[in-house]
């Protein structure tokens, strides 16, 4: 298969970026999207040109490192997959493919397609944990948890922190990311103890870092590679409101 690639190139955070056009040829349909970029980059190196910088690591859809906006969609075509899980058979032979970094004020571009997602770490540092010390804990079976609750907690905990939700949201809101953590812990007795404090602290940090507000468009859910439901946002809102009412 052959493709024309329009790729965002940007020297660093301070420079202006622009699209550049590249051709890749003889790509097997079984090649992954990122392998296709590996092939392009190897060609560029042979030509003495700087390869396209993009984030990636595990290539199994779990580390959350890959973060490409492909043809206007976070993580490209197909639902419930990260960029690394997209295969070239999803594209038409001869297609022109546009590749951009996440577009979000809270995720500044570092270089080309690489952005800084440190804001997500900061939100979790504000309260996305259970305050237990190492070794100061009861037996694992001391707290029975209904299977349905554990399963729902796990649904939310599947978040890989890739940033697709905020990058997709027209308001640049990180609500789905925050909700996934708050909701996952809210469904477990271990997480309930600090529930009110957690919801308030994480929402406050999200606001402070320049993420926008949620207007329930549902775009985040549609583009989330782990298909995390906006029902968790509803739970976050409930947690947050009841915490505020108690103030």
């Amino acid at each position: 298969m052959n493709f024309t690639l329009k790729i965002w190139r940007q020297k660093d955070a301070k420079s202006q970026g622009a699209f550049e056009t590249y051709k890749v040829e003889n790509i097997s349909a079984d090649t992954s999207f990122l392998e296709m970029l590996d092939i392009l980059n190897n060609d560029l190196v042979h030509q003495g040109k700087e390869p396209v910088a993009f984030d990636h690591d595990c290539r199994e859809g779990i580390c959350g490192m890959c973060s490409l906006h492909i043809d206007g969609r976070a993580h490209g075509p197909g639902d419930g997959a990260t960029t690394c899980q997209i295969y070239m058979r999803k594209f038409k032979d001869g297609a022109t493919i546009t590749i951009e970094p996440w577009r979000s004020a809270a995720f500044p571009v570092i270089k080309d397609l690489v952005v800084n997602r440190g804001a997500y770490d900061q939100i979790l540092q504000a309260g996305g944990f259970v305050s237990v010390r190492t070794n100061s804990v009861p037996d694992g079976n001391a707290i029975p948890i209904a299977k349905a609750d554990a399963d729902e907690s796990m649904d939310a905990a599947a978040c890989v922190g890739c940033g697709a939700c905020a990058a997709t949201c027209k308001n640049g809101s990180a609500m789905l990311f925050v909700a996934a953590r708050v909701s996952s812990l809210a469904k477990l007795p271990q997480g309930r103890v600090e529930g009110a404090r957690r919801a308030k602290a994480m929402v406050a940090k999200m606001d402070e870092l320049g993420f926008g507000n949620c207007t329930n468009t549902g775009a985040c859910q549609a583009e989330c590679p782990k298909q995390i439901s906006i029902a968790h946002i509803a739970r976050l809102n409930r947690e947050f409101l009841s915490a505020k009412l108690d103030d």
Binding site: F129, V130, V132, T134, N135, V137, P138, D139, G140, I143, I145, A146, K147, A150, D151, S153, M154, A157, S184, L185, K187, L188, Q190, G191
Partner: peptide
């Protein structure tokens, strides 16, 4: 296992 459960790791349950 005890440590991870206390941290809120959603292990599979019966």
């Amino acid at each position: 296992i005890d440590q991870c459960v206390a941290q809120g790791v959603p292990f599979a349950r019966e």
